[in-house]
Amino acid sequence: MKTFRKVLPKATIMFLLFTALCGIIYTALVTGLAQLIFPYQANGSLIVIDGKKQGCALLGQQFTDPSHLWGRIVNLDVTTYKDRQGRTLVYAAPSNLSPASPEFEKLVAERVAKIRASHPEKEAFPIPVDLVTCSGSSLDPGISPAAAEFQVTRIARARSISEEEVRQVIARCTTGRFLGLLGEPTVNVLEVNLILDGKLR
């Protein structure tokens, strides 16, 4: 205990020094450099068209309309966040369900039935797994190319445009693996839908 009292003042001074260095100076330095060099990324990669925010390129939204590309299953959170005017904002949370549970089996069966009903032309094909699962953040902006291709006919039919047009939009919004090797190729669902709706060029 005597040793403890002896080292305590130095420990306190060191803690204060590190708080200033790592908490304030480091955070301020990174923020300053980030805002200087990468302002778009540092501020949330917001899609702004003609001065109007249209979405966040990195956050997925829920799509259920037949004329839109659908993304991962979203587990909506409509209770946690409000804006300054008190209006409810939507966010999302992961399912945290065990994929080996009977509850999960029932949920997936419902999702399969829903997708089957909207895609009669794909009856003979199994459904890409991305379309029936909730992601880790539940805000996944992407789906696999297989999951996008599965929906092409339905979107073309709902919009009375050619499948080729839909495929072109999807191809424009597809990102490959990093260096061609790491991660997975994905289609940005929000961007596809903003282009299809004519909001984004």
């Binding site: 399912s95 696999s144 997975e184 994905t186």
Partner: peptide
């Protein structure tokens, strides 16, 4: 696609 157990995993 990545396939497999995608519940709780991000597409990318």
């Amino acid at each position: 696609q990545a396939g497999g157990n995608m519940e709780g995993k991000e597409s990318r």
